[in-house]
Computed example of a mutant assay.
Amino acid sequence: MQLKPIEVVSNISKEEFVKKYYLPQRPVLMKGLTDQWNHKWTFDHIKKLAGDQTIPLYSNARTKGNKSTYEPVTTMNFGEYLDIMRSGPTDLRIFFYTIKDHCPALLDDFEYPPIGLKYFKRLPALFFGGSDSKVFAHYDIDLPDNLHIHFEGHKRVLLFDPSQSTALYKVPFSIHNAEGIDLDQPDYEKYPALRLVKGLEAHMEHGDALYMPSRWWHYIVYKDPGFSMTLRSLPLGPKGKLGMLYNVFFMRMIDNLMRKIQGQKWIDYKNEWAIRRTHKKLGIS
């Protein structure tokens, strides 16, 4: 794959962000944006507020059969999970922990960065991962503009423009690519189109804020135990909003129905379909 470092800026103004990144839909890694409050966001603070909760956990494994993509692999005490995550490598991670529903006290510990995004304040969400955790390449089903803020540790994020969907082997009726693909160790024999993929590489540390425009793919690797908060903004323009409605209310419904009816056969069929379609579009025999 052809990766370039993402553009990094410090203490950006609202006017500059809107003109150079938001309106053109260009990703950027911003430093200094959360300096006034990011010191509060630590594992110990989370454990103090929510350590007694029972939380669902996910792993690096893809969902099989007729199980929902959103079905966890296990549940655990939140405080126990944080201890396990900090004691050594684990691929267990927390997906979409909504602050308003599960720990509203955290709403007092941050400020929405005033950079021109119209935040959907119902859904600030947290994501946690141990040092073996990976989040497979995907884009968000509701097509938001995301401000992704990282705390504790370091993580690596690869970003891909929507135009790279074909070369990434996008799976039909899904928001991810073919299941056999490992972007850390691409198999160019089986997936030769990956050689054509162009993307951006970001390395995040505590307090960094990553702007991910609507429809952009992201692949995430936790280098150390850490967690992030995503602040969502509705997609720009009527096309983006119609796409969001299609994905959430039609595409996801069809995919869930076919999973229930055909189980693993549907998943395997979609993966084979993705490979055939990509190779046909790109003229790969």
Score class of each variant (00 low, 15 high):
R215Q: 07
L257H: 13
W217G: 05
R215A: 12
A167F: 08
K190A: 14
G237V: 06
I254Y: 14
F227W: 11
Y188W: 05
Y222A: 15
G237I: 10
G180C: 05
S165Q: 10
F250W: 11
S233P: 08
E205C: 04
D161V: 03
E272N: 14
E201L: 07
H206A: 10
A202K: 08
D208L: 01
M229I: 04
F160H: 06
A178H: 11
K260W: 14
Y219E: 00
Y269S: 13
D268W: 12
H206T: 12
L183M: 05
L210T: 09
A209C: 08
T166A: 03
L245P: 02
T166F: 09
I254F: 15
L200Q: 09
A209G: 00
S233W: 07
M212F: 06
Y188G: 04
Q262L: 15
G240W: 06
W217D: 03
S163M: 01
L210V: 02
I254S: 02
V197L: 07
R215N: 09
D187P: 02
M244H: 00
H203I: 14
L183Y: 00
L231V: 05
L234Y: 10
I181D: 01
Y222K: 07
G207W: 13
V171P: 02
L196P: 02
G207M: 04
V221A: 06
D224G: 08
E205V: 12
G263W: 12
Q264V: 11
T166C: 00
K270V: 10
L236R: 04
M258L: 15
E179G: 10
K270T: 09
F249T: 09
R259D: 15
I261Y: 13
T166W: 10
I181P: 07
M229R: 00
D255C: 01
S233D: 09
H218L: 00
N256L: 12
I267A: 10
S174N: 15
M253A: 13
N271S: 07
A167K: 03
R252Q: 15
M204C: 11
E272D: 14
Y222T: 03
W217T: 03
V221M: 12
H176T: 13
N271H: 15
A209V: 06
D184T: 13
Q185C: 11
L231T: 03
F227R: 00
Q264S: 12
G237H: 04
P172L: 10
M251N: 13
S214W: 05
Q185P: 09
A178Q: 04
I175E: 10
L196W: 03
H203W: 14
I175V: 15
Y188H: 02
F160D: 06
L257F: 15
K190S: 11
I254E: 13
I261C: 10
F249R: 10
E189T: 08
L231N: 01
Q185W: 14
